[in-house]
Amino acid sequence: MYPAEFAYLRPPDLDGLYTALAQHGDGAKLIAGGQSLLPMMKLRLATPDVVVDIGGARELRGQWRTEQGVRIGAATTYRELQRSPRTLALLPGLAGALEVIADQQVRARGTVGGALAHADPTADLPAILLALDASVDLHSRQAERRLALSDFITGVFATDLRDDEVLTAVEASEPPEGSGGAYTKFEQPASHFALCGVAAVLTVEAGTVRRARVAMTGVTAMPSRLSNVERALTGCRADPAALSESATVASEGIEPLGDLHAPPEYRRHLLEVATRDAVRTAAARAGVRWSA
């Protein structure tokens, strides 16, 4: 399968990307790792006139410690993140999520910015980044803005990104001391995509959950926080029974999607199981000892 014909540009810097986008408008498409875009182009689901490679723009690579947490350049690959122990140490739950994304070859190409801009309703990275209170930086020649990740993703493969904008970086927040994170995923074995994935970041103090961030993917039109579960957890004793109990409200008010691989009722069930596992693992990593 070949993509339809297109012209290829690789500007040497971020400014060149802005120019290319401004010049070619909605006929242009950015390519990062190509792990989502190229399969779509082969199927002719995407037929851009101009493909603009972000690979030349060094400004989009790198990870920086910020006051809030870590700022990660959009062109950073999953593999590079996996090999960045300092970032992983600051962002609980991230390492476990990266490990279960796709396979080693896809992780070597797929980027953080591509994953977020593509907004696949079953993507793993958005779930853990929602649990880490992430925001994204969007830049164009004219303007720059910052959006909470939860406002950036607006639907199935839909975001608030404009035609002339580049997602330049994502900033994830370091949770307070005493936090632990986990990601639990049930995957479709052939594609590796999530039937259901739940990320949890819990802060535990003196045996009580002080702060909870829980987010899901794969279940509805887009990854989102599970505020019911977060409310149930906040102030709750961090013992196995109470933590498990919080998972029973996970699917309240949620209409799971169904497909060939998992009908809605099955996804609803997986959501509860994955939530229970993720919050218990996160609590254990926050230092809770069950026997204590």
Binding site: G34, V51, Q105, A108, R109
Partner: peptide, 20 residues
């Protein structure tokens, strides 16, 4: 699968131009 700059990738999902 081939190695690009020493890292294994799937060459059916990379443009030759990207490997320049």
């Amino acid at each position: 699968t081939v190695e690009v700059d020493g890292v294994a990738v799937k060459s059916c999902t990379m443009l030759a131009a990207q490997a320049g």
